[in-house]
Computed example of a mutant assay.
Amino acid sequence: MYQVLFKRLEGNEELALPARMSEWAAGFDLQAAVPAPVVLAPGERKLIPTGFAMAMPAELEAQIRPRSGLAYKHGITCLNTPGTIDADYRGEVKVLLVNLGQEPFTIERGERIAQMVFQVVPAVSIKESSELPDTVRGAGGFGHTGV
């Protein structure tokens, strides 16, 4: 099991730390640490603070993903999804939200706005080569498999 340290930032002591909302949930829900309600107009994007910073082992990354309920009901999602938080980042975790819906959406303090999923990052080395091994697919790209 990996241990991730969380630090509540000043002025956010009453907000819950990220938490799983069910026993087998993959994601930890993140709350908005906005000082006052924030309105996202249709097509608008804003960076929303969470009120915490964290430290995780070098073997992990944290991915920020949308909450399905907000996406389905209101068209609220995350840009650059999944957003990656690297293990060496120590600043406040923030969520880049966008309103793809038809109506303005108000983000309230303490509202669950996204989820964070931790993933193991494999150790990878890069080696330059003048030749690559052949495969059946070869260089077939977008749409190559008929989808």
Rank of each mutant, 00 (worst) to 15 (best):
F142I: 08
A62G: 11
R137F: 14
A87I: 01
L60C: 07
H74K: 13
E131P: 00
M116G: 04
F105R: 00
Y89L: 05
V98C: 03
E108S: 06
G110E: 03
P104C: 12
G138T: 03
P82S: 07
E108C: 02
S125V: 13
F105H: 04
R109Q: 04
A58E: 14
V124Y: 06
E108L: 09
G140Q: 13
V124I: 15
R109M: 01
P133D: 07
G138D: 09
C78S: 07
V136Q: 11
P122Q: 10
V93W: 11
G51P: 04
L96K: 02
D86T: 07
V121P: 05
P104Q: 09
E108T: 09
R137I: 11
E103L: 11
A139M: 09
I107G: 01
F52S: 05
I126T: 10
G75F: 05
L96N: 01
T84M: 14
L96I: 10
S68M: 08
T77Q: 02
A114F: 02
P133N: 10
D86C: 01
I64H: 05
G141F: 13
E131M: 11
L100P: 01
F105T: 04
V95W: 14
A87M: 01
K94G: 02
V121T: 14
D134A: 15
L96A: 04
H74E: 04
V93A: 02
A123L: 10
E59H: 15
V124T: 15
V95T: 09
T135C: 01
R65S: 09
A87Y: 15
G101H: 06
G141K: 08
M116F: 08
A55N: 08
H74M: 00
T77A: 08
K94P: 00
P66F: 07
A55R: 15
E92C: 02
R65Q: 07
M56E: 10
L60D: 10
D88T: 05
R65P: 05
A71L: 04
A62Q: 05
P104D: 04
G75N: 07
T84H: 11
K73Q: 13
H74F: 14
R90V: 02
A114R: 01
V95G: 12
P66Y: 11
P57N: 08
L60P: 09
Q115K: 11
F142H: 14
C78G: 01
F142P: 00
Y72W: 15
I76T: 06
E111P: 02
L132D: 03
Y89T: 02
A53K: 10
M116P: 00
D134K: 15
V95R: 12
D88P: 00
F52D: 03
S129G: 01
L96P: 03
Y72A: 14
S130P: 03
V117W: 06
A139W: 11
R67H: 10
V120P: 00
Y89G: 03
G51I: 04
D86Q: 06
E128F: 15
I107S: 03
K73G: 04
A71F: 09
E108M: 05
V98M: 10
L60G: 10
